[in-house]
Amino acid sequence: MTIQKQKKIFLSALSFTLKVALGLLFISPLIICVLFSFQPEELIGKTPPTFFTNRPTLDHYRWVFQNISVLSYMKNSLVVCFITITCQVFFASLAAYAFAFFEFPGKSLLFTLILASMMIPGDIVIITNYAQIQKWGMTDKYIGLVLPHLISGTAIFLMRQCYMTLPKDIKSAATIDGCGDIGFLFRIAMPLSIPSVASLSIYLFILIYNQYFWPLLVTNKDTMRTIQIGMAMLVSSERLEYGPLLAGAATCILPVVIIFIFGQDYIVKGMTAGSVKG
């Protein structure tokens, strides 16, 4: 019996170790990026490669922070994320509240319109949107960077799903107590939806922080570039040195990896809401 038990513990420890090893192999590009970003340039180009150097250096990071306005890019990315997330959460809450708590003529038509808009991927209309933003003179401005992304079908679905779980009787009770429609939304529904708002926000953060195509189109000035575009400039620069490139990549992914590790449960909820029924 004890031998069997020992065998079981041994097997589960073995399976755990193997699964973690497989995971580390899978993210090995990230590990390699971090390890090599601390190596002097002449070591990076050597075969066979050295993985652990005994003379690590911060030179590449110093170079990146001195020659590239990383902090300004990072600030732009964070401003764009903040505006986009705030607006999406707010507008989606309003829409979700209308769909979850009201019956009104045209409701199903309007809901279908929102559903159908999800059939048109943003990348299909990106060029036409760019022409519009350019015509309005909004390139190289925060407003141009965020405007087409202030609402999304995903956000509406997630918030609607959350509001539909709130019992309808709360609303009747609140109405009897003299709470108006808007008061109910701000004083009762929104506070109750904070876990969903957290999921949506973290999910959107990863999405918006990692945006590439749109900011590439609408930013020309260096002072308006987001971190992804700044990073891309480094990738496609003429004299490509791998040390600074890896240091830049490590800097760029650090915030999002931290958020990912601590907010994984929220991200899963944000991703899976509204996309799969069943």
Binding site: F26, I27, L30, C33, I206, Y209, N210, Q211, Y212, Q228, I229, M231, A232, V235, G248, A249, A250, C252, I253, V256, V257, I259, F260
Partner: peptide, 8 residues
């Protein structure tokens, strides 16, 4: 890796 953007 789903959290890693295309440029890095």
């Amino acid at each position: 890796p789903l959290a890693i953007a295309s440029s890095p």
